[in-house]
Design a protein around this nucleic acid. Sequence first.
DNA 1: CTGAAAGCGCTAACAC
DNA 2: GTGTTAGCGCTTTCAG
Lengths: 336, 336
Amino acid sequence: MFEPATLKDIAIALGLSTSTVSRALRDTYEISPKTKKLVLEYAEKINYRPNPIAQSLKERRTKSIGVIVSEVANQYFSQAINGIESIAYDKGYHVIITQTHESYEREMINTQHLASRGVDGLLISLSAETKDTGHLSALHDKGLPIVFFDRIAEEIHTHKISANNEKGAFEATEHLIRAGYKKIAHLSSSAHLSISIERLRGYTKALNQYGIALNPDYIKNCPHGGMFQEETESAVLELLNLKEKPDAIFVAGDRLSMGCLTVFKSLNVDALNDMAIAGFSNSDMLDLLKYPLTSVRQPAFEMGQIATTMLLQLIESKRPVTEFENKVLDTKLFLR
Amino acid sequence: MFEPATLKDIAIALGLSTSTVSRALRDTYEISPKTKKLVLEYAEKINYRPNPIAQSLKERRTKSIGVIVSEVANQYFSQAINGIESIAYDKGYHVIITQTHESYEREMINTQHLASRGVDGLLISLSAETKDTGHLSALHDKGLPIVFFDRIAEEIHTHKISANNEKGAFEATEHLIRAGYKKIAHLSSSAHLSISIERLRGYTKALNQYGIALNPDYIKNCPHGGMFQEETESAVLELLNLKEKPDAIFVAGDRLSMGCLTVFKSLNVDALNDMAIAGFSNSDMLDLLKYPLTSVRQPAFEMGQIATTMLLQLIESKRPVTEFENKVLDTKLFLR
DNA sequence: CTGAAAGCGCTAACAC
DNA sequence: GTGTTAGCGCTTTCAG
């Protein structure tokens, strides 16, 4: 097996002590130039790398951050992850990605796992099932830095970054209204998620502003964010079977938007022609779709970058941070 | 900061030695039932978790595996990752995902990073740029278990799992031929990748078998697997500008298939009607596309599972493994 | 300027 | 059955 060189190997080879070698390799300001040179050259020659596990044990940090998302197959999240990596790697941090698949239980397991593996901080977007955030506040109270992105926990006092969901939802709904639709339904993820609440608010606001009455039957939630297609399917069918059938749907999520189109596809095409859709999506393929989908796009990459910058700031701060930011970024509407 | 309980804390609280506590918590067969019970209950009560960093340092293993893929946004890879996780988590292993974005340099950096962080093994699908696999064979020679999936390095002697690319390519090409197309081009990732070689072989074989001459001008490679849209665009334009314009394209990759459609979209629609496409893709959205794309789908989830099973077998094997498997799974053709 | 020694949390001979 | 001790690889007082 794979036995990398250690400090001790260098020390023995050079007739020095491990502490001298250790200092020569990093510290410097009290080591003679000649030993330093000697050590550095030898280390270079044998391609020495300090054992990060030993360093972690000693220094009580792992130079790694944990990320918890619903699923990497979701375009929004894969773009956010790219943003996260771009910052983290620059600063010498490793990124450990985990997926909840919208399950509360998985979220708890992943959280535990990451915490016990000693990540220095956590970047999380809550699962659709998550109502209770006790698993997170427990860790947060013990001092683990956490930053929320996209799907926020209001009750935990830390940095947060999200899209302007209300405004984005407003604009999408407004677009439908201006296009002449009056019976606009709303298909959303689980009702308690921050993004669902905000998007619902934007939808409601747009209806109000244009003098359209809110019809409670028009609002459908998918408790698993459409992770199971049956969920989306039955929600859409319920809408289609209403006596007063809606003529448009504002969909509050990437996976739901696709799920919704899939349901439409499986039905007759007529159902489509008089049913417009606008929805949140970060997919790059929307222009290639058979059905025009007006989309609200979040600045995912940038959100990932900002979340990571915030987290590293918490991690590397000398004194406890007490002022927290709640950053909100604008979405962009793409008409189709 | 976050200071979890240690063995010592338990030992002091219970008036035992750390070794007794350590044994009580795990070993057992020589600890008296009563102390065992005492320790277990107390540990449970204070919610004790062993420090994995210390365990790793001691036991020279981290119970984590590294994964290197091009990008998680690629459906094939996100599905494979789900397969990987499903096995790894079951066996108590943590999964660290990294992306190369098809860059050789990133691949080397990620490999180094994962190795130095002490992953117990590596699951890798080569980047499009990678020609030299010295960075991997160096680690492999030192004893790091590595399993290749999808994009294989022939020269490294270890377990490998891939799709039957040749057969998949053959079937897709054959489908185009039977549909009446005769001037079939081939758009592929970088020429040296195992998947490119195999898919080219399948394409060639189908042409041969149906008595169609191979036209070298019809074969275009994208050295970055279409990671940059310009690359795909210029390749497709070159095909379209040939005096003897092809009437169909067989595309050898997920990203390339989408890139190709995007180029088509940006051109006039007529270019589409007389240009059929068949290609490798694991996207779930193909049925929703404006353009019918006959697709070759790989059993991504299963491949991830098998690769992980193989890797864990290498990692946990008592004696050095010398017999290696080269598993090949069938693809599935979806006509559109 | 350099070395000896302690210790991070855990496991495993080796006593007794 | 349980305690003592050493040691994984590294950093960091504390002495010289």
